[in-house]
Design a protein around this nucleic acid. Structure first.
Lengths: 107, 107
DNA sequence: TATAATTACTTACATAAAGTAACTAACTGA
DNA sequence: TCAGTTAGTTACTTTATGTAAGTAATTATA
C-alpha cells in the first residue's frame, strides 16, 4: 500500500521541523545571536529541552555555539548558513498565520 | 527578560506545524484526497495518532472529512482552502531539504 | 571568610504524548 | 454463519517533555 513514497530528504527536514520548539528556536535566532537564558525566557521552553534542542541543532549544523570567556561566561547561539536558509520557510509560515489564523485565538 | 515577544498567530502556526506528523499529513494531502488506511501505510504513522491528528486538523479547518456510504464505507480526507494555503511553506521546506540535506542520511 | 549572585547547564522525578497490538462496528459476499 | 473490508477505538508500554532542584565556575558583597 506504500503508494506514494515520500522523499527521504523532505521527510528528514520535516522530522527536524516538527519537533516541539525547534522551529521557534530557529525563528528567534533569525533576529541575531541569542544567549541560553534569553531563549529560555522569551519562549517559555524548559532549560532541559532547550539544552537538548540546541545540541541537536548544533549537530545538524543549523546552529553554531560560541563561548566568550567573560565573567560570568557568555555563550551565544547563532544560525549557520544552513540555518539562515530556513528564513524563506519561516516567512511563509508567518504569512499563512497572518492570513488564516484569528487575532484572538482563546481569550 | 521577555524581550522579544513572539506574535501569537505565528506561535500558534508553529505549534500546529511542530506537532509530530502534522506536516507530513498535510503534505500527503497536497497531492489530493486520501483515505485513512492510505495515509496510515504511506507514512508509517500509527492509527491511534493519525486519528488524533485528523480530528485536530478538522477542528482547525485545515482538513475536510467526507463520508461515502459505499461498501465498505469510504472516507476521504482532503485539504480545505486554509490547508492548501500551506503549500508555499511546504515548497520552501522541500527546497531547503534538497539544498541542504545529504542524499544518504544514515545508510 | 562566608554568602550571595550570575550563567549555563544537568539530574531526578512526574506527567503527557506517541507507539503497539488487539478489538469493535457496520456492512457484504461466500 | 464465517471471513473480509474499512475506519476507527481501547488498554497498555515506551518515549518525550515539564518541573524543580542541584552543579561548576567565577566575582561581588557583608
Amino acid at each position: 500500500m506504500d503508494q506514494s513514497a515520500i522523499c527521504p530528504r523532505f521527510e528528514k527536514a520535516m522530522s527536524i521541523m516538527s519537533q516541539r520548539w525547534t522551529g521557534l528556536v530557529i525563528y528567534q535566532l533569525l533576529t541575531g545571536p541569542k544567549r541560553f537564558c534569553s531563549l529560555e525566557s522569551s519562549m517559555g521552553i524548559s532549560g532541559r529541552v532547550l539544552s537538548d534542542r540546541l545540541k541537536e541543532l548544533e549537530n545538524q549544523d543549523i546552529v553554531k555555539r560560541e563561548v566568550y570567556p567573560e565573567t560570568p561566561v557568555r555563550i551565544e547561539y547563532s544560525l549557520t548558513e544552513k540555518g539562515r536558509a530556513l528564513e524563506p520557510m519561516m516567512k511563509e509560515i508567518e504569512k499563512w498565520s497572518q492570513t488564516w489564523l484569528p487575532v484572538e485565538p482563546t481569550p
